[in-house]
Design a protein around this nucleic acid. Structure first.
Length: 426
RNA sequence: GCGAGUGUAGCUCAGUUGGUUAGAGCGCCAGUUUGUGGUACUGGAUGUCGUCGGUUCGAUUCCGAUCACUCGCCCCA
């Protein structure tokens, strides 16, 4: 094993893995486009304030997981830990509030200084959508439907469940927060050390604790549902009805909360039991206060992000690479080699994916053709050259025939189209 | 950040109760077949036994540290 290691929590994407990875991103991009989300990209680093202010200073991401550094001018920059803040910043920077709704899809690397585990890396990749400018719950329904559609289109292994909850509007949430803190303070002795700390910082998160003692206490805790004001309750009901109208199954999870401070109303997660502790595959919610908090015009928003690595690990089957044509010069004669290069380029210009065997005897070159899963071998030797022809061998059936050069592309297309009698009429 | 486990060939793993030349399967390379692949057969190469240090006559094996990964917590995608 080499001493040249990649940085902790980072990984190389070798071609085979990359195919699965790209399939996830391309499927996401394609499905999102059907829902009207146009792709955009923001820089992978921003001024640190973009994240520090928007994610909230109680979130773990801001308090201990950011890759922050000073550039040569002493400016504090941060590698983006998630995508929404950058999109929101771009939305404001570019004055996009005049053209609502604003619907975007994005894909790219994110960075968090965390302890790596399966499905949890320091550099990972997300795809995500954001829908800004619509305060009606139909927007939430559309965003969630796009997410479900992508997961279905990918053919994810195992069961992926949609869990939803409402955090209510600010008024409801503050009322609940007060009640919850009062309740938990009364039973603080029963709480885990982690949760005691969270009581001040982010009490809602205690609801999500995996500690058994905590869970016993939480079972008796007041429910957020009982603190929703009429508007918040109506919003949540509309969301649920909207999901049911289009046949999206969901499970209500009153303990589902969000780690980031900017969320309100809708919170949702798509989870699987196939990834151990990292079961969340896609998550999001509504963030009506975010744009204003960042200094932009008050604009509601809703969106989600999904982990590309997590999704690609769950891919039922990664798409196979395209089957090439193998160009096989017979022998090492300089004239044949030149001719092979010319024909290879000609086929590529004609749209074929061509693997040119550079060296070795014929057997070796054929083996290579087999290894790259070529569909057809184009054999070019002295006989063919003199006849201004090539021999085409179907590597699946073993049938081969010699065709004149001006029929090469046509015959190849026939073979790729799967026509059994592609050699017919030659 | 906390607790635990693992680290031997490109991959999956066996092994040495501390002893001189470290193994298998898969893969890779070559040959049987110098104008024909997949199957089969034959042969071959490859390791600072993660890294550094300690104990020892001697360490891949024992001890310590360190790095990486894995599992749980935390957090989240």
């Amino acid at each position: 094993m080499s001493s040249l290691q990649p940085v902790r929590g980072t990984h190389d994407l070798l071609p085979e893995e990359m195919r699965a990875f790209r399939h996830v991103v391309e499927t996401g991009r394609g499905v999102a486009a059907r829902y009207g989300f146009a792709e955009m990209a923001t820089p992978i680093f921003e001024f640190s304030g973009v994240f520090a202010r928007t994610l909230g200073d109680t979130s773990d991401i801001v308090t201990k997981e950011m890759y922050t550094f000073a550039d040569r001018k002493g400016e504090s920059l941060t590698l983006r830990p998630e995508g929404t803040a950058g999109i929101a910043r771009a939305f404001i920077s570019n004055g996009l509030a005049n053209d609502l709704p604003f619907k975007v899809f994005y894909a790219g690397p994110m960075f968090r200084y965390e302890r790596p585990q399966k499905g949890r890396q320091r550099q990972f990749h997300q795809i995500g959508v954001e829908l800004l400018g619509v305060s009606e719950p139909q927007a939430d329904v559309e965003v969630i439907a796009a997410g479900r559609h992508i997961i279905d289109a990918l053919g994810i292994k195992g069961n992926v469940t949609l869990e939803i909850n409402t955090l209510g509007d600010t008024e409801s949430r503050e009322a609940y927060r007060g009640a919850l803190v009062a309740f938990l303070s009364g039973r603080i002795a029963e709480l885990s050390a982690d949760s005691r700390e969270r009581l001040e910082r982010n009490p809602l998160r205690i609801l999500d604790s995996k500690d058994e003692g905590d869970r016993a206490v939480i079972a008796d805790a007041p429910l957020l549902g009982d603190f929703l004001n009429p508007a918040s309750r109506a919003f949540y009901d509309d969301l649920k009805n909207g999901l049911m109208d289009i046949g999206l199954d969901f499970v209500e999870n009153p303990r589902l909360v969000r780690g980031l401070d900017y969320y309100g109303h809708t919170a949702f997660e798509f989870t699987t039991d196939a990834l151990g502790a990292q079961g969340t595959v896609m998550a999001g919610g509504r963030y009506d206060g975010l744009i204003k908090t960042m200094g932009g015009p008050a604009t509601p928003g809703v969106g989600w992000a999904a982990g590309v690595e997590r999704l690609s690990m769950l891919l039922a089957e990664a798409p196979a690479a395209e089957r090439p044509v193998a160009m096989i010069p017979a022998g090492n004669d300089a004239v044949i080699r030149r001719e092979a290069t010319i024909l290879t380029e000609r086929l590529r210009r004609a749209g074929f994916c061509v693997d040119l065997a550079f060296s070795g005897n014929m057997g070796k070159r054929m083996k290579r053709a087999n290894k790259v899963a070529a569909k057809v071998a184009v054999i070019l030797g002295e006989d063919e050259r003199l006849a201004r022809a090539v021999t085409l061998r179907d590597l699946d059936s073993g049938e081969q025939t010699t065709v004149s050069l001006d029929r090469m592309e046509e015959t190849l297309r026939g073979l790729f189209a799967g026509g059994g009698d592609a050699f017919g009429g030659i």
